[in-house]
Amino acid sequence: MSKPNSPDNAGAFDPLALENQFCFALYSASLAMTKTYKPFLDQLGLTYPQYLVMLVLWQQDDVLVKSIGEKLFLDSGTLTPLLKRLETSGLVARNRDEADERQVRITLTREGRALKRKAQAIPHQVLCASGQPAESLGALREQLTRIRADLARSFS
């Protein structure tokens, strides 16, 4: 019996071949994307996960930790240390919510708001680095968003 990728079966589809895995293509593209962001974010003193939190806060300031976690698909165990580091850096403040002291509210500091101006060029720089037209990346983003929603329904 010949092996799936042997010359005898040239052209046969192997469902377990690494190059046939959608998950690996997505994972390795994600790694490449994070590496592309790194030099830009280093200039801001942010890691990629911190940048994502800042994106949420630049869109809407003064939000609950729970809300940030929902938008980024992160649990509080992952988010809390990240927020503490942003607070130590002077970019955000963490305060108990007045209506419900069990909840923590995150607000941008003056430095956190000012950092947005420095970050303005990053999306365009990453777009250029990708070598792809904006329309193609927009369509891919929409497709990945649908895939994420479908996968989330399958395990919830």
Rank of each mutant, 00 (worst) to 15 (best):
A121E: 13
A139D: 12
V104D: 07
K118E: 13
R148W: 09
Y48W: 08
E19G: 06
L16E: 09
S136V: 15
E19S: 06
W58Q: 06
F22M: 14
L55F: 01
S28I: 07
A17R: 09
Q103V: 07
I68F: 06
R110D: 15
G131Q: 06
L57V: 01
L18K: 07
P133V: 05
A129Q: 07
N95M: 10
D75C: 06
Q132D: 02
L83S: 05
M1W: 13
L115R: 12
I147D: 11
P4Q: 01
S156H: 15
T109Y: 03
L46R: 00
N9A: 04
K84H: 14
K38W: 06
R96P: 12
I68H: 02
C23L: 11
R153D: 14
A119F: 04
D97N: 15
A119R: 02
L44P: 00
R102M: 11
R85T: 12
T34G: 08
G138N: 15
S89D: 15
A10I: 09
S6L: 02
A119C: 02
Q21V: 01
A17L: 13
S28M: 11
E70M: 12
I106T: 04
D14K: 03
C23E: 12
N95V: 15
R94D: 02
F13I: 00
K71S: 11
L127P: 02
L137V: 11
E70Y: 14
S130H: 05
